[in-house]
Simulated scan of single mutants.
Amino acid sequence: MRAMTIPTKGELAWSEVPDPVPGPDEVLIRTAATAVNRADLLQVAGFYPPPPGAPEYPGLECSGTVVHAAGGWRDGAEVCALLGGGGYAELVAVPAAHVLPVPSGIDVVTAGGLPEVACTVWSNLTMVAGLQAGETVLIHGGGSGIGTFAIQYAKALGARVVTTARAVKHERLRELGADVCLDYTVDDFTEVGADVVLDIMGASYLERNVRALATGGRLVVIGLQGGTKAELNLGALLAKRASVAATALRARPAAEKAEIVAGVRRDVWPLLESGAIRPVVDRTLPLAEAAAAQAVVAAGAHVGKVLLVAG
């Protein structure tokens, strides 16, 4: 098969590589599409190696057709899957418990951009933060794949949604359900009074995120685009009886990922099938043009997911 390898740090190459051999509890999928996530950019740059046992190729999700079935799946089924790596390839082997059906009403290519974002959003807003109807959530990076999905999911839960993004993206984000859009280059978000903050920035936003929390608020850090180290005022946290959590999805044990996938299928897939959540795709490019697709994501001008189509 062909896959997008990393011959040297910072480079991608479309190469012939051995086909993956599925284990006894693994499904083999012929890839229809995958998506570009910021973790892929970090991996290519040499900063985010795959977890032990995962393929060395980038790609944290995929969609396609089952060509070797296991775990109750059947050959020929159209599916999508959460991956530890390997999505930038024509074939991928993945534990059966990390596979999802393509939601009804959504085409198989579009489904290639669903598993990572759905699992990230559900595991953080529901499993970690316990976001409830009537609460206010502050979502940073609203125009990203995570942001566009999180806005819709939070709205479907009945939350009030505040998001930060460049002003040019605000109209689109309001269409997705954002109640308030703030331009992070000029607007102050510290007075939001958020019950939950979903943060992609890390260090550079830590102090302001704590100030933005309401009493009993929960800050969940899922990205470190603004750095890894900052000073935390524990007094401010104590005064608000607030909490800070930091999570990553890729390195979780297989059993935890299976639990998240099951929760997504139960809670999120019905919202996709009813149209309460609509996948947002900025553009699609051939898998062989992964470097160009990653440049789009690096520039940050996109809204939603950037997909890579195999074949």
Results as ranks from 00 to 15, higher is better:
V303M: 09
A236Y: 15
A299E: 05
S123K: 04
P18I: 11
V210N: 02
R211N: 14
K155I: 13
V261H: 03
A212I: 07
V192L: 09
A242Y: 01
R211V: 08
R166G: 14
G147M: 05
E256Y: 14
W122L: 12
D107S: 06
E56H: 15
E259F: 13
C181M: 12
L41V: 09
R30C: 14
V261E: 06
A77H: 04
V44A: 03
G23R: 00
G311C: 15
D183M: 06
V192M: 09
G130Y: 10
A77T: 13
G193K: 00
V280E: 04
Q43K: 06
V303H: 02
E231G: 07
P279Q: 03
L60K: 04
Y88P: 03
A69E: 14
T65Q: 14
R208G: 11
T31S: 07
Q132D: 09
L83F: 12
L285V: 14
L272D: 04
L176A: 08
V186W: 12
R252C: 11
L224G: 08
R30W: 05
L173E: 00
L285A: 14
V121K: 00
L238T: 10
G177R: 00
E61R: 03
P101C: 13
D75H: 14
L232S: 15
R252D: 15
A89W: 02
L237P: 07
R166W: 11
L41Y: 03
A194H: 03
H140A: 10
A129K: 00
E289P: 02
G142V: 08
K240G: 09
